[in-house]
Design a protein around this nucleic acid. Sequence first.
DNA 1: GTCGATAGTGACACTCGTTGTCGATCTGTG
DNA 2: CACAGATCGACAACGAGTGTCACTATCGAC
Lengths: 137, 137
Amino acid sequence: MTGSRAPSVPGRRATRQRTAIAGLLDELSDFRSAQEIHEELRRRGDGIGLTTVYRTLQALADAGEIDVLRAGTGEASYRRCSEHHHHHLVCRSCGKTVEVEGPAVEHWADRVAAQHGFAEVSHTVEILGLCAACRQT
Amino acid sequence: MTGSRAPSVPGRRATRQRTAIAGLLDELSDFRSAQEIHEELRRRGDGIGLTTVYRTLQALADAGEIDVLRAGTGEASYRRCSEHHHHHLVCRSCGKTVEVEGPAVEHWADRVAAQHGFAEVSHTVEILGLCAACRQT
DNA sequence: GTCGATAGTGACACTCGTTGTCGATCTGTG
DNA sequence: CACAGATCGACAACGAGTGTCACTATCGAC
Ligand SMILES: [Zn+2]
Ligand SMILES: [Zn+2]
Ligand SMILES: [Zn+2]
Ligand SMILES: [Zn+2]
C-alpha cells in the first residue's frame, strides 16, 4: 500500500540508505527519533551512518513527506503521516499516536490571527495524554 | 504596577540576581531566550552568570510565573504572562506576542482525547504569523 | 548588630542532539 | 563502460542546557 514512493525530485538519487529509512518509516506508526531509527536499522544489519539518517529525515521533513514532533526536550521525532492537514494525539508514556482533525480549531486560529492583523498564519497543535492501555497498570 | 513579587516560597531567597531577572521580565512583553536576557542584564551593568539566568528562569517556569515557548530550534524563550490558561499569537518576524483564549479549542482537545480513551490530557497550541507592522515593508 | 547555617552564585567542564567537513564511494546518464 | 557530481559517513565542531563545587550572600536567631 505505501509501496514505492519515487524520489522524483531532480537531483535526488535513490540510494540503499534512503530506501531503508523510507521502508522503516512505512512500518512504524508512532513518532521515532533519528537515533532510534538509526539503532533499529543497524540492528537489522543495514550498515548506515547516523549523519545520513539525520540528513535524510531532514530532507523528508522539508519535502513534507514526514511530520516532525518536538517533544519537551527539543529532541525531534519523525513519523510518516497522511497528506492532508491534521494534528496529533500522543501518549506521553508509550508514544502511541493518533491523527486527529478539527475544523473548529483551524477556523479559530485563522479568525483570531485575522482579528489581530496577522497574516500568513500557521499553527502548531499537539495533544498529550495517557492512553487507555498505559493507564491500566 | 507589577511591583514587588514576593518570593514567598520557603527556602527561596531574594537575591540581587533574581530581582534583576524578575524586573527585566516585567518590562518586556515578548518572548526572550535565556541568553538574550543574560546579555541585556550584562549590558545594564548587572554582573550576572549565565548559569544563574538559566536556573532562575527554570524555577520561575516551574512555579508557573512565566510561560515557556519552544521555537523551531528547540531554544526556549520566556515571557511573563497572565495567570489564567491561554495561548499565544506570535509574529515570526518581530516576535510581537498577543495572548489569546479559545474555549472552543479547550473543549475540542478534551473531547478528542476522551474519544480515544486518553486521560490526563494537556495540549500545546501556538499561532504564528506576520503582524500588520511587519507586513508593510 | 552580628553570627552561622545554608541557599545561592558562577566559572568551568561536560552532556547530547544536531550540523559541518571532506575524502571515499556510489548512481544514473551518455 | 566512463564520468560528473550527488551521497555517504567518520570525525570534529557547535550550541543550548546541566552538573560541579568552592566561594559568597541572605536572613532568622540571638
Ligand atoms: Zn500509552
Ligand atoms: Zn491545524
Ligand atoms: Zn511583527
Ligand atoms: Zn489551551
